[in-house]
């Protein structure tokens, strides 16, 4: 467990009270992001997003799998079960997320320390993304109803850590899903009600995931002292009494909420926090989408040389 001294804690808390955080930011200011997409050639979609020192790499892979309906499943995998329980229909695909925090990222992730946080983050992602609130049109992932569908695997690797991990992960997921292409399938009827399908090899034919525009991003609000802040650094997270995670989509609709840690909240403060999260979430999505568009325009230009992680 990372340590902090009582006087540092007092300094941070009083600074937040005075709207002058340790790095000079105001309470509702974010640090700068650095984004790259489409960097992992083996994946269907990928993104690396950095927020100061926090560094997240996401690979999305689409694979064909069986549709497991609630009644027939005898799956032992707990997380998969969790997702399956949420869907009773037999004409939907699914999204499976897993987060892995690299032990080199933080002292807290060494040994078995990362297990808890890996599980927590994976579960939040699975719960937010699987369902109507997740934005993605799960029905469009279905290939043969009751039999086969596309499964979107979202694998998150945390390379470095300096606070506000969840917001970074969700923004990167949105960017990676925007970047993902699913191959086209063609269904054939081979008689007696049997269906068969072919996967198109043509890369040009691959389609974007339907509904990626509606994938929400999270805004984590940390209550420190009597005030709350967004985009906490690792040090500020150590001073946090209560944390509220709010998932917002591009229309400013709240898609999910979670309270963590042991502190309490005033209902009036909670409404204020939700309003802030809504406003910030919309700006986050707007700016992210503009950057992604810009990146695509740049990439399509001739003699454009790409720079970044895998160069």
């Amino acid at each position: 467990m990372a340590l902090i001294s009582p006087s540092e804690k007092d300094f941070i808390t009083k600074g937040i009270e005075a709207d002058m955080r340790n790095d000079g930011r105001s309470r509702i200011a974010y640090r700068d992001f650095t984004i790259e997409t489409g960097i992992v050639s083996q994946a269907s979609g990928s993104c690396r997003l950095r927020l100061s020192k926090t560094d997240v790499l996401i690979g999305v892979k689409v694979e064909i799998g069986d549709i497991i309906s609630n009644t027939t499943s005898d799956n032992n995998n707990e997380q998969e079960q969790d997702i399956v329980n949420n869907q009773n229909e037999s004409d939907k695909g699914r999204i499976v997320c897993s987060v892995e925090c690299s032990p080199s990222a933080s002292r807290d992730f060494e040994g078995k320390g990362a297990n808890d946080i890996n599980n927590e983050l994976s579960q939040i992602m699975n719960r937010v993304l699987n369902g109507p609130q997740g934005g993605i049109d799960l029905k469009s992932l279905c290939i043969i109803p009751g039999a086969q569908c596309w499964i979107i695997y979202v694998d998150v690797l945390v390379l470095d850590y300096d606070g506000n991990l969840l917001d970074t992960i969700f923004l990167a997921t949105r960017a990676a899903l925007q970047n993902t292409r699913i191959p086209k399938t063609e269904i054939q009827d081979i008689g007696n009600g049997q269906l068969e399908f072919d996967i198109s090899d043509d890369i040009e034919d691959a389609e974007k995931i339907k509904g990626w525009e509606d994938v929400p991003v999270t805004v984590s609000l940390n209550k420190i002292g009597q005030k709350y802040i967004v985009d906490a650094t690792a040090m500020e997270e150590l001073c946090t009494d209560t944390k509220i995670i709010i998932a917002v989509n591009r229309n400013g609709e709240i898609c999910a909420m979670q309270k963590s840690l042991y502190g309490s909240l005033n209902p009036s403060l909670l409404t204020e926090m939700i309003r802030t999260a809504k406003d910030i979430g919309k700006v986050l999505i707007k700016n992210l989408d503009t950057t992604l568009e810009h990146e695509q325009v740049m990439a399509s230009r001739a003699n454009n040389k790409k720079f970044g992680f895998f160069i």
């Binding site: 974010y30 992001f33 790259e36 406003d279 910030i280 700006v283 990146e295 720079f307």
Partner: peptide
């Protein structure tokens, strides 16, 4: 509210 997304640029 100002939130900036940078893209990696060529080394100077």
């Amino acid at each position: 509210m100002e939130i900036i997304f940078n893209t990696p640029s060529a080394p100077k």
